[in-house]
Structures are given as structure tokens and as C-alpha cells.
Design a protein around this nucleic acid. Sequence first.
DNA 1: CAATTAGGTAGTGATTCGCAACCTAGTTGC
DNA 2: GCAACTAGGTTGCGAATCACTACCTAATTG
Lengths: 162, 162
Amino acid sequence: MGGMLREDLQALCSLPAALEAMGERWSFLILRGSFNGLHHFEEFQSELGIARNILANRLARLVGHGILVRAPCPDDRRKIEYRLTDKGYALLPTMIALRQWGERWETGVPATPILVDVRDGRPIRPVEVLSHDGRVLTKGDLHWALPEDVAREDEPEVKAAE
Amino acid sequence: MGGMLREDLQALCSLPAALEAMGERWSFLILRGSFNGLHHFEEFQSELGIARNILANRLARLVGHGILVRAPCPDDRRKIEYRLTDKGYALLPTMIALRQWGERWETGVPATPILVDVRDGRPIRPVEVLSHDGRVLTKGDLHWALPEDVAREDEPEVKAAE
DNA sequence: CAATTAGGTAGTGATTCGCAACCTAGTTGC
DNA sequence: GCAACTAGGTTGCGAATCACTACCTAATTG
């Protein structure tokens, strides 16, 4: 692979855009809190031990990016509920992948509460990069291609995941 | 789900450990550079436009965490090569997942150089959380369990991905 | 109507960031 | 073999961000 695509890679990769939304220090931990059922300012604050102004700033930023929605509780109008949007839920694979990486390479052991499939109680699979037909792809199996060079799905094989 | 596991979740989740290694501002972009074939200080610097002292700090930190290795080039001993370790390569699913999320929810359109399987030239599948037998799991399908409650793999079903 | 609670804002010092300049070892030109 | 150049940093400085504490306001409870 030559350096021909270098600038296109730089310009058009969506990783910087993703990092603009999620790249700040507490963002992923707040997201984890949301996935774990935290909804209120004080819950996040006491759970994460984050400074209040930073928490307020992060929550506002996550709301601004459409990852959380901010809604006053109808029963107690002092309370504000922060809930994940679809866009926020869509970060689940990223978060699980990062968590699994930390398990494998940083803490070294599987974390004690194990994330399992609720349907059969068995641990989830490691998050991996898969080809269209489900083969596991590693770094050498990947390639950058321009749209016109991409093989179209002429044969109706397995199309994405349903 | 009660708040019973709350503290265990907090204490034992490996996400904070992962973020300690990768949570800083430029870390993911440096990683992307490494995956895209950058190896030298000046390459990263001119490609990412990062400040030199910050780049030096990030590279040293990534090396310290075992994500990159630092090795002097044998042919030109001014040059230092930064290469991904296995631990660094293992971040591929996380990075792809984050990039795909950015494509779907931030930039809105698929990035122009498309990441494809080199074997058949077809785009890769979206990174997803899968059950042990390959079903796609969303947020409601997941559950925290203690090790003793986790279903063992007594029946030899599909075990991980081959 | 006083006390409490939820969700913030304001002020202050310590870190970190980005930018530019400088430095050092190794390499190349001649 | 000495000047010029290059790779990979380090240093200093101002700006932005961080964590910590105190304070504030609206709603709720006693």
C-alpha cells in the first residue's frame, strides 16, 4: 500500500469526529454509567467521583452530541433524567471492545461481574472485526479501497447482520 | 437489577484501566496512524499535526503501556521505529468500532476509502456484540453475572469464532 | 416556612495543551 | 573532516482544561 491515500485517509476518516464526541477524559465512564443504569446527576457524581463542574460540562456535551437526552422527571421536577439515545446505545460495541481489551491486556484477568447473554447466561464473545461472511479479520486482512473498487453485493449472500 | 453490584462494577470494570492507556486526546489517532503504516516521529507529526512535545509524551506513554515498541533503525541510527505490539494490534476492534460509529452517527456517510476484506474486496461487517453462538446482542440482551452463575460450556457448541 | 435535595455555577490553584525555539546525535556533501 | 542537514526529541511560555470547594436556585418535604 503506497502513500497515495494518505491524505484522503486523514481527511475522511471518521475517527476524529467520533473522538470529538467521546474523546474526553470522563466521557466513556459516564457512558458506562448510563449503560449500567445511572440516570441522575448525583448518581454519576457519587459513583464516578467526578468533579461537579466537569460532570455538568460532560453531560451537557454528551447531550449536545445527541448521545444522551436530558429530560425533567415528571414526578419530581427537581430531577433531571439523562438517558441514552439510539446514538448512545450504538456505542455499546466500542465500549465493550475497549473493556474487553482492558480485561485481556491491562487488568489481566476477566472482571468479576461477567457480561453474559441474558438468554442463556453464557459469556459474550470477544468483539472482533468480521468479514461480510463472518470470518475473523486481523490487521493483515484489511485493505483500504475506493468506492468504485469495492465488490458489490451481486450475489445475495449474507448481507450484514440481521 | 438492583444496586447491589454497583460497587463491584465500579471497582472491577476494566474500562478505567483501558482508558488510562488510551483515554488521552491523541492516543487513538496515533494508533490509527500506526495501523495505517506510520512508524516515525516526523511521520506522525506531519500527518496528525500534533505538537511535538505532546507527540513525544504520547509515544512514550504508549510505549510505556506496551502498545507500541520503540526500536532504533539499524540502517539509520538517527531513526526510531514505533511499531504496534500484539497488545496494540488487539485494539483494532475498538478502533474500528469507534470509527464505524463516527461514520454512522457523526459524519453521516461512509468514509471514502472504505475498509474492505483483502480476500474478496467486500466491506467488513459492522462491529457488534455477539453471543457465544453468534446472535447480535443489544443493550437489553446483556446482564452482569457473578462467575459462579455463569453457564459453563458443557455442551460443545460453537465456541468463539474460528 | 424551615430544612433538605437535585442540579447546577463561580472562584481558585494545579495540570495539561499547543506553539515556537532550541538541542543533540547521527548522516550526508564535498 | 567540517559544514549543513535530518530525526527525534526537550524547554519555556501563554492559553485552556482539570479538580476541589463553596455557593446558588428551584422544587420538595416536614
